Amino acid sequence: MSLALPARHLGEALGSLRTLGRRTLLALLGIVIGSASVIALVNIGDNAVEDARSIFKDLGTDTLVVQFPAQAGDQATLPPTLDLDALRQAVPGLAQLAPVQMFSAPVSVGGQSTNASVVGSDASLQGAMGLRLRQGRFLSAFDRSGNGAVLGAQLAETLGSPVRPLQVGDQVRINQDLFQVLGILVSQPNAVLVPVVANDALIVPFDAMRRLQARTRLDNLIVRVAPGRDVTVTGKALEAALARLLPGRESSVQVAQSILDGLTRQTRTFTYLLTALGGISLVGGGIGVMNVMLMNVAERRREIGVRMALGARRRDIRNLFLLEAMTLSAAGAACGALLGLLFAYLYARFSGWQFSLAGGALPLGVGSTLLVGLFFGLYPAVMAARLQPVEALRDD
């Protein structure tokens, strides 16, 4: 009996909503659109945050990049190199410390030539940037002044040919100097913070840059912080140590984690804005529910009077109309959940993002839809419960 009574009331609610026909469908459509908007926009915002995080995935949040911006009137010129051992002693916790100098130059192999970014560095660059090799090996301490080079995947493909791809041991000409290919890197996504584009780079020993350029200077330092160290604190210590080692010369230390945190906050704000827009459309659907329920009460005044005359209490009448409003809202929430997830999935696919279901999307979308239905269905239900039986029975 306890299960039969709610089932009977639910059947009455569905039958009553069916009698309203198109008005019920229009109210249901408004609820579906509102619920789908909330779920889709919350999920899209969450996927946007994950996409922003993936930009720094290969770079790692334990990376620091030191830049030496040029300023007019600088009295202190940047030396061609830096005492890295002294820097490591001054700042404990630096796992990898790679000096970087870059310039653009024409490179060629046989009849193939292109313009490439020539990067001067040392063996630490592999660990600092997380570079992986497809063939051969990376630079070592024995290659400091040698003519070895490591090529990015895209550059190696450009300099090679379908008939004869570029191989380890080939000779690459940079200006008038020949360098032997020691290794070829695996293709990897570009890191936003790091100035080196690995796929298009030709990496040579730092000391070899003196033969390629009349004047060499240190452009950047790429630093990997040791595990367990606070990246922000280490970055501040590194900036202070550089100020002592290079008096009068400004240096800028960029922390990947700080940039990622700021980017995440901005994306979260965007997500809240999208959720608010979805909430506005959901409120519009709730107004549609209230309109349908008011019409329902107006058309069923005589039925309400009969129910009261037969012994129905005011709370029974109120609960009956609340059940109808909640039934309409629950149906809209279910359909809106499916539609919202479908839209979020298609949006992620077309945007090139990795789709993932946001943890709060479904609870927030379905829960807010039910609350809106309850809120906007409460007034018509209370109005129906306050009808006087005698006045209701007089209605034709």
Rank of each mutant, 00 (worst) to 15 (best):
residue 68 F to M: 02
residue 104 S to F: 04
residue 52 A to M: 15
residue 145 S to M: 03
residue 364 L to E: 08
residue 222 I to L: 03
residue 252 S to T: 09
residue 124 S to Y: 05
residue 291 N to H: 02
residue 166 L to M: 12
residue 373 G to E: 11
residue 316 D to E: 12
residue 99 P to Y: 03
residue 180 Q to H: 07
residue 386 R to N: 09
residue 294 L to G: 08
residue 1 M to R: 00
residue 305 G to E: 12
residue 371 L to T: 10
residue 287 I to P: 11
residue 180 Q to P: 07
residue 182 L to K: 13
residue 204 V to T: 13
residue 177 D to G: 00
residue 172 V to Y: 05
residue 28 L to F: 08
residue 260 L to H: 10
residue 123 A to E: 14
residue 370 L to S: 08
residue 256 A to S: 02
residue 101 Q to W: 06
residue 361 A to K: 06
residue 324 E to T: 11
residue 306 V to Y: 07
residue 377 G to K: 12
residue 259 I to G: 13
residue 336 G to M: 09
residue 380 P to Q: 05
residue 28 L to C: 09
residue 281 S to E: 01
residue 390 V to S: 14
residue 178 L to P: 00
residue 271 T to P: 05
residue 136 G to V: 15
residue 199 N to G: 06
residue 236 K to D: 11
residue 224 R to H: 03
residue 166 L to K: 04
residue 88 R to G: 03
residue 114 T to W: 07
residue 54 S to M: 12
residue 54 S to N: 14
residue 49 V to I: 11
residue 367 G to W: 08
residue 52 A to N: 12
residue 171 Q to F: 09
residue 28 L to T: 13
residue 228 G to Q: 01
residue 331 A to D: 06
residue 50 E to W: 09
residue 4 A to P: 01
residue 350 F to D: 10
residue 268 R to M: 10
residue 145 S to E: 04
residue 81 T to R: 10
residue 294 L to T: 05
residue 279 G to M: 11
residue 93 G to H: 05
residue 311 G to S: 01
residue 177 D to K: 12
residue 333 A to Y: 03
residue 30 G to T: 03
residue 250 E to A: 12
residue 277 L to Q: 11
residue 347 Y to P: 02
residue 13 A to M: 06
residue 229 R to L: 00
residue 265 R to P: 08
residue 203 I to D: 05
residue 206 F to H: 07
residue 41 L to M: 14
residue 341 L to M: 13
residue 345 Y to H: 04
residue 94 L to Y: 01
residue 193 L to F: 01
residue 224 R to Y: 04
residue 208 A to N: 01
residue 308 M to D: 08
residue 98 A to T: 10
residue 102 M to G: 00
residue 19 T to K: 13
residue 257 Q to K: 13
residue 271 T to Y: 00
residue 250 E to S: 08
residue 51 D to F: 08
residue 305 G to K: 10
residue 76 A to W: 00
residue 162 P to D: 03
residue 306 V to A: 09
residue 124 S to A: 12
residue 68 F to I: 06
residue 382 V to E: 01
residue 209 M to G: 07
residue 155 L to Y: 00
residue 164 R to P: 01
residue 81 T to G: 11
